Simulated assay, not measured.
Amino acid sequence: MRLARGQTAVVTGAASGIGRALAHRFAAAGLRVVLADIEEAALAETAAQMAADGAEVLAQVTDVADADSVLALADAAYGAFDAVHVLCNNAGVGSGAEGRIWEHEARDWQWAFSVNVWGVFHGIQAFIPRMIAGGEPGHVVNTSSGDGGIAPLPTASVYAVTKAAVVTMTESLYAHLRAETTAIGASVLFPGPHMLRTGLWESHRNRPQRYAKQRPRRNPYRTLTQWEAAMKQAGREVAFTPVEQVAEHVVEGIGADRFWMLPASEHSDRQIRARAQSMLDRANPAYLESFILD
């Protein structure tokens, strides 16, 4: 799909991190941008800054875990701009789960799935029928992660499982769009190839009361800054990928109608090969033995 001035992009999780970078990049390409986020103040700030820079934007406070909230987002987008050409189901959270998988609280899973999986489905359900009915070229980008989307990450198993689900959901979406012979493409995004400075580390700030933890954490939450400092103290330098680079990768991928928005990475390639070979060999997952689970 060729991005062109006057088209409309919808981005969830648009008030910070990858979502905000995507919004800026689409605006730079001349697109009108619908910004959706659960954080009202940060959303208003982002929208005001983009409007001051000359972008045509609409901000809509949205809880992607709530189907009615996402339907309201679609109504607002079509009410303002008549059409949607790009949909980025990008909003995501961690989980806050600790310990072995059998020690996790059910609410950790419920919260992570409500945003990372149901949030993507709600976006698909609210927008795709209207995009198909519009008859114009379009593209859907669902944000996954190498942590789960490429290979399991036992140290963050809840998050990893949700991101694995996003991959399969997007593969199914791709097949269904092809079966409908639409001009709408689909992609799964693996941000990277390195760590990212996003608000995901502090996503617990937006955890709804209905999913509140039922017992105190054994360890306090760590910010990204604290984690990075701990890594440096341990003698490990951490590489970061700018979110603007991720946004550029998405724009290039849409233009190329590329399903796998997966940046080049020897680390990722090794993970893919090891996991695939284990399956082909019907062998136990030896590639997981490198994880140290404290």
Rank of each mutant, 00 (worst) to 15 (best):
A156G: 09
A156Y: 08
A47R: 06
I124H: 07
R107P: 01
V120S: 00
V161P: 04
V84E: 02
V140P: 00
E40W: 06
R130T: 00
V34T: 04
A74P: 02
A36T: 00
A65V: 04
W118C: 02
I124W: 15
F121Q: 13
Q110V: 01
Q49H: 02
I128S: 06
D75E: 13
D68T: 14
A36K: 02
F127R: 00
A165W: 12
I128G: 09
A72F: 03
H139D: 07
V117D: 14
T155F: 11
A76Q: 10
G96Q: 08
I38V: 14
A160N: 00
I132T: 02
Q110Y: 07
D66N: 12
D68C: 05
S157P: 10
I124Y: 13
V93A: 05
A52L: 06
F127I: 15
N142T: 05
I38K: 03
I101E: 11
G119K: 11
A65T: 03
T62N: 06
A52D: 12
H139R: 11
A164F: 03
G123C: 14
V115L: 06
G148W: 03
G54Y: 15
W118N: 06
S95E: 08
N90H: 08
I101H: 12
A97D: 13
V166F: 12
S69K: 10
A74C: 09
